[in-house]
Design a protein around this nucleic acid. Structure first.
Lengths: 125, 125
DNA sequence: CAGTATCCGACCGGATACTG
DNA sequence: CAGTATCCGGTCGGATACTG
């Protein structure tokens, strides 16, 4: 094989975008609800801190996977929704999910139990 | 939406397995060659250190995506190949790649230029 | 309600040197 | 050739307190 045939940078980009401890979960909830408010999201995701939730929401928004909508007034009212790009990604994520369930089911079960002690992220932004 | 409907742990597992700065590239090269030797891999991946290459190879092997084969004798001769699981993953990775090229092409181009200064990983193992 | 502002510790990628 | 052994620094996730 010749050197440097690797040009699959898109894969790296996609994985980078998806990297963040809570991003898949955030994406899941946002894509399954027409309008998800910040506090609601914060309530249903166990143990996440507001700062981290904000961080990951900002990244997802910056990458164009979700949309942020702010209604003026007080108290503030912000809701998030899935974008076109984000929506286009979901079948791919389902495929990944499916692959894991078929090929590494032990790890999935194990993961379900730990659930919460898991750490992970990706650097680079 | 009711709470805790999120059960897509497989997605988390899959992303965790794929997380590592060089893993997609390693996977690419290994899956496109019948037998890839350690030093060869080290040569064609720019700038990776042996320690990091070993780390990521060990993780990929532990997760069952690649196989390690060691021939006895001296000097040592080790080669890596893609496994069944790893092979089953490649269409999904192509889909991810495709998504990125269609939906975040700017970032992909940008990434191609930086190429090398990029950092990322995922914790939790 | 939906954020900021700080501070902190863990972990991962990287550099360098050494070895069976 | 294919690894180990150390050490280091940056980054991200997390905790806590404060604010428009």
């Amino acid at each position: 094989m010749k050197n440097n045939e690797y040009k699959h940078c898109g894969l790296n980009v996609a994985l980078t975008i998806l990297s963040g401890k809570w991003k898949p979960m955030i994406l899941y909830y946002i894509s399954h609800t027409p309008e998800m408010r910040f506090t609601e999201l914060w309530r249903i995701i166990p143990k996440i801190t507001k700062k981290v939730l904000l961080d990951q929401l900002k990244q997802l928004e910056a990458d164009g996977l979700i949309l942020r909508q702010e209604k003026s007034g007080f108290p503030p009212e912000v809701s998030y929704q899935i974008s076109e790009k984000g929506h286009a990604l979901s079948p791919v994520l389902s495929a990944l999910e499916e692959w894991a369930n078929v090929h590494v089911s032990e790890k999935v079960e194990q993961f379900e139990q730990e659930s919460g002690t898991r750490r992970w992220r990706r650097n680079g932004r």
